[in-house]
Write a protein that binds this DNA or RNA. Structure first.
Lengths: 253, 253
DNA sequence: GGCTGTAGTTGACGCGGATCAAGGCAAGTG
DNA sequence: CACTTGCCTTGATCCGCGTCAACTACAGCC
């Protein structure tokens, strides 16, 4: 009972969708796979991880996974599809906080306030593993590898938050954004040079604190410079070193 | 053997310095006080917290607590003084990531990379509690309150990272910055309307992604509008509601 | 077919804030 | 004391990017 390619209509590049393995090794690209490996796949604790996880979805493009103010009970690992998180201020202006790809986890910023401080919106058809956080905390107390993994995930997200920091030109920001996406796809085993942008130009612009028109212009310029090939949302990186060069001030050394 | 006011020469406002209590209740404003209270002050686990903490300092203004690339072994809670964290890119440009006041914790973003991804620099004379992270993790496994507290601290910092997000005017940013500081001082029991800015205009500007001149101009304008009184680094908020109004788009609802 | 809505691209123009420059003030130093 | 150095303020100029606008492309719908 596996729905194969829920996002549909991506002819050329392989769609980045985490293919679940069997029931025990349920997520090849799962956010917790490294914790499982460290703990040893066959330890009894793993069975507990099985118990506290719940597969949810599909969510269609535009649907909310959670909303600002919802009580925090669980974190969500993206199994397939893409998610944006965003805050909406009282004047109704949106601020995109991040995009989350298969294998990444949303909801960690809700632990402290105990309510979600932002919305999570599916950008295409999306499935999740839902982890009850109380159960996960209890498990973390007994399995050091799980605790360590949670600490690491939280710390990692702290680091990525500073990708936005600094005042940089539109070119630098867009180049760094593309290279960041490429790296994250590569880390999960997808192509690092050819992928689909699930988010609109407006979302990219908002995330990078630019106008949609500026993003459009920069992408056109990158294309005319031979750095990328782009048609609609299908993207190919023709010159990753060149892009890295352009965005280097924003990228991890 | 308590050095009284290491920063010196602050005649009017009470200097924000955490006064240690006795050896058992060692930090009234400590970053872990809530964890201690939750665990119960007299539980044996508290003695362990005592064991893994080490008081370090003083660091003088400009001295490094840690540097980019240093191996990660501990986190540091500010006992007194102020710290900035910053990254320096290969062109030598500095990016200030944050300011840390008494009771706040630095180093959490180093858990994942296992090396510090940034420098921490004292802005005035500063003392710390140093917590060995391996020991702290081990303790967290046995004391749920400690684990919970670590999760909450990490998650809280994730939230504060998005104070910078969004593209906002210089006025909004500066107002939000001042109100944020005020709230953090208030949370630790210091005056929320009158305090000392330990960081230079340049550091503020860098953190807010503005030019130092712009920060200077905005502060002058706020003074002429009767929102603040400021002389050098001594600041008094005359109209907190007005400032909150100005910075509302950036501030938590 | 025509109508409508959404997303993206491209051009023209103006503004907010960066940059450049000059000067003031306080603390430290020989 | 004069001199330097660092920090701050204020004014003048300039430019990157936001804003406004027009246009294209495409999908869904009746």
């Amino acid at each position: 009972m596996q729905s194969k390619h829920p996002a549909g209509r991506l002819p050329e590049p392989p769609s980045p969708i985490a293919d679940d393995g069997d029931e025990t090794h349920f997520c090849g690209t799962c956010a917790f796979s490294s914790a499982c490996i460290a703990a040893g796949y066959h330890k009894p604790e793993l069975a507990e991880l099985q118990c506290l996880v719940e597969h949810v979805g599909p969510f269609r493009a535009g649907e909310h996974i959670f909303r600002t103010g919802d009580p925090f009970r669980a974190i969500f690992a993206v199994r397939s599809g893409t998610v944006k998180t965003r805050m909406v201020d009282k004047e109704g202006r949106e601020q995109v906080l991040g995009f989350y790809l298969p294998g990444e986890v949303i909801g960690l910023n809700a632990i402290y306030p105990e309510h979600f401080p932002c919305d999570a919106v599916a950008l295409d058809t999306t499935f999740f593993c839902r982890f009850s956080f109380p159960a996960m905390s209890a498990l973390a107390s007994r399995v050091p590898a799980v605790q360590k993994h949670l600490f690491r995930m939280l710390s990692k997200e702290l680091g990525s938050a500073s990708l936005l920091a600094g005042d940089h030109s539109a070119d630098e920001r867009v180049a760094a954004f593309l290279m960041d996406l490429a790296g994250r796809y590569a880390a999960r085993g997808f192509s690092a040079t050819r992928f689909h942008l699930s988010m609109s130009r407006g979302d990219i612009a908002n995330y990078l604190r630019l106008a949609a028109e500026t993003v459009s212009r920069v992408l056109s310029r990158f294309r005319s410079q031979g750095l990328i090939q782009i048609e609609g949302r299908e993207l190919e990186l023709l010159d990753p070193p060149g892009l890295r060069q352009t965005g280097q001030a924003l990228l991890p050394r």
